[in-house]
Simulated assay, not measured.
Amino acid sequence: MKGLPANSIGTIENSLAAATRKQYSTTYKLWWAFCSTNHIDPFRAEPNQAIKFLQEQLDLKPNTGYGTLNQHRSALALILDNLSCSGIVKRFMRGVFKMKPLTTKYRHIWDPKTVLNYIESLGPNSSLSLRQLTMKTVTLLALISGHRLQTLSLIRLENINQSPQGFEIWITDHIKTSRVGGEQPTLQVPFFQANPSLCAATTLKDYLKATQPLRKDEFLFITFRQPHRTASKDSISRWVKEVLKAAGVDMNVFAPHSTRHAVTSAAYKKGLSWDIIRRSAGWSQNSQVFAKFYNRPTQQHGSSLAPAILAVNN
């Protein structure tokens, strides 16, 4: 309908992440039903008709927030050429934002020391089962890097480089924050001699040794049950959730992804500079997602999150 060559459609579709496609499919089901009821061509609707749809979603579900409405708007803009530049739609969304402003997900966050104390209580790596070692490894990496669990699920063996100082891990796959010309994240995992029980580098080294005979794929994390397939992001999320729950974190309030909130907040309070936190956790140079909530003078200590996070247990 837009006059595009048929062989370009797949390329254009690849611009959307799998999660985005899933979100948009929800919008399109609602939009198709709305258009059918109101006898509207879903591909040639006017901005005022799109606003009617968005307002209807707002009225039918009063708890709908700005983020959900903006997701609907983005999905419609993909199929309606005149929506993106519509001034009245922008005005409508500004009104939604004022009615339902974005808020932080958590009013408070758990202390990483709680989880580190639990991990330390597990004992030496040599005494752990593969299940325990797997969960310890992924949780420590989440804590000392501050990265999303999606990033950890994309660690490839070929991108893990060991040195006397620790490990450097390159992430080459596309992640949520990947942009044209942007930097891909690099995870720094230094050895922590002060407390071997909490050393992520040592634990990673032991995990690699324990899983080497079981590997059939190129990714770091594998399931601890046969046939030991590559672990998905959802599996990694469940493992971290189990560790947090065992450590006493209220999982009715917090999600596994809260490791990112907890460690960056703790590092900031320890005096780590915003620039180091930003680079370590994968935020862009101009990102205000973290900085606007912790905008205080800082003092630089080291070059990664790991020492600041693990030191909270000493």
Rank of each mutant, 00 (worst) to 15 (best):
E56H: 11
L149R: 12
S265C: 03
K233P: 00
N295S: 12
S129Y: 00
P164K: 09
L310T: 01
Q285N: 09
I12E: 13
S153E: 12
R179N: 10
H108Y: 01
I9G: 04
L102R: 10
S129I: 08
M1S: 11
W170D: 15
S84A: 15
V312L: 15
S265R: 00
R229D: 01
S84E: 13
P101G: 01
V243N: 01
K241L: 07
E218S: 15
D206C: 14
A247Q: 07
S129A: 06
R279A: 15
T114L: 15
P101C: 10
Q193C: 09
S273C: 04
K52R: 10
L141I: 10
F290K: 08
R260Q: 02
F254C: 03
V138M: 04
A200V: 02
L305Y: 01
F43H: 08
T139R: 07
N7M: 07
N117L: 12
A281S: 15
K98M: 12
S15N: 14
N195Y: 06
Q300Y: 06
D173L: 14
Q212H: 14
S121N: 09
G181R: 08
T177A: 10
E242M: 06
I109Y: 03
K61M: 04
I12S: 13
M99Q: 06
T103L: 06
P42W: 07
R156M: 13
N70V: 03
Q55I: 04
A262I: 01
W239H: 04
R156W: 12
L102Y: 00
S121Y: 13
N125W: 00
L152Y: 06
L152C: 09
L154Q: 08
H174R: 15
K105H: 10
N286Y: 03
G3R: 15
Q300V: 04
I276F: 02
T202D: 12
A231V: 02
L69E: 00
Y268E: 05
L69D: 00
N313I: 09
A306N: 09
L149T: 07
A291N: 07
P196R: 05
Q188W: 05
Q162N: 08
Y268N: 15
K241Y: 07
V138C: 06
A291V: 12
S178L: 12
D250C: 07
L305G: 06
S126W: 00
D81N: 14
G10V: 11
M1Y: 11
Q285C: 04
I160N: 02
V312G: 02
S126F: 00
L141M: 10
K292A: 04
R131L: 11
D275P: 00
N286H: 07
P124F: 05
I119H: 03
F191A: 02
F191R: 03
H72S: 06
